Amino acid sequence: MTELNGLQTLLGMYQKLLRNHPIPTKSLTSAIIAGLGSNLSQLLSGSPLSMESLRAFVIFGGLVTGPVTHYFYTLLDKLIPGPGLLKYLLRLLTDRLIFSPGFLVLTLYCLSRLHRESHSKAVENLESRYWTCLVGNWKIWTLPQIINIGLVPVQYRVLFGNMVALVWNMYLAKTKK
């Protein structure tokens, strides 16, 4: 019972932070989960832990993923408001066919740069990995996004996405090799 009380207390603190400081809260959780995904990928593959990879994923999660996805989900519901199957499908298709491909470009390029690769190397990396990662994105993210956009309240969508991103960041770190 003590674990349940501790979890409820933690959830209450998270909800309060989310109400009072949504972007820093989402940024911090994104940073932590991105770093965890990078480290888990390295551990599961038997690679030594790389502080550079941890740093890159934490910075990207905190400075890009948290704020960008916060604004994306908020804007998505404002651009396509209301209930109904058609509106839901439009929001889902906007995510899967417009936001995700563009955000993947940003992700691959920024992670390369945060791994201290040159601009030309980052572009080369983007070109060589983009289609494989986009297909991986559609495979890994589509079902969770059906749930996220359809059922999860907007204030919790970044957190829900962070949970899926734990697996996604492991995939990205793995395909980096």
Rank of each mutant, 00 (worst) to 15 (best):
G62Q: 04
L143D: 02
E117S: 13
S38V: 07
G35V: 02
N5K: 15
F57Q: 09
I140H: 04
T107C: 14
R55K: 10
T29Q: 06
P24H: 04
R96K: 08
N39C: 15
A165I: 07
N5E: 08
V167Q: 02
I98P: 05
S118H: 05
M163E: 03
C133W: 06
W168Q: 09
W138Y: 13
C110P: 08
R91D: 03
Y73R: 03
L63Y: 05
D77L: 07
L85P: 02
T25C: 02
L11N: 10
E127G: 03
A165W: 11
S47E: 14
M170W: 01
I149E: 00
G37V: 03
W138R: 10
V123C: 09
K87W: 06
L104G: 01
Q42C: 04
V164I: 13
I23F: 09
T29L: 09
L159N: 01
E127L: 13
V68A: 08
Q15G: 02
L92T: 00
N20Q: 10
G61I: 00
T142E: 06
W168F: 14
Y171C: 09
D77Q: 14
K16T: 12
E3Y: 10
S47L: 11
F60R: 08
V123Y: 14
K16N: 06
L114V: 05
Q42F: 05
L36F: 14
V58F: 13
K16V: 10
M170P: 00
R157F: 05
L143N: 03
V58C: 14
Y109D: 06
D77W: 00
T9L: 11
W131T: 12
L90Q: 11
L10H: 06
N137L: 10
R96M: 05
A165F: 13
I59L: 12
I32T: 12
N125G: 12
P81I: 10
L79S: 10
L134A: 03
R96N: 01
P144M: 05
S30M: 02
Y171L: 14
M170G: 00
S38E: 08
L4V: 14
L108N: 06
P67W: 12
E117T: 10
L63P: 02
L43R: 10
L159S: 00
K121M: 06
T2K: 13
G6I: 07
N125F: 13
K174L: 12
N125I: 04
V158A: 00
T25K: 06
F160R: 00
G66N: 09
W138E: 06
K26Y: 03
V152L: 03
K139Y: 09
T65G: 01
D95W: 12
Q145W: 13
D77Y: 01
G37A: 09
S38L: 08
Y156I: 01
Q42N: 04
K78S: 08
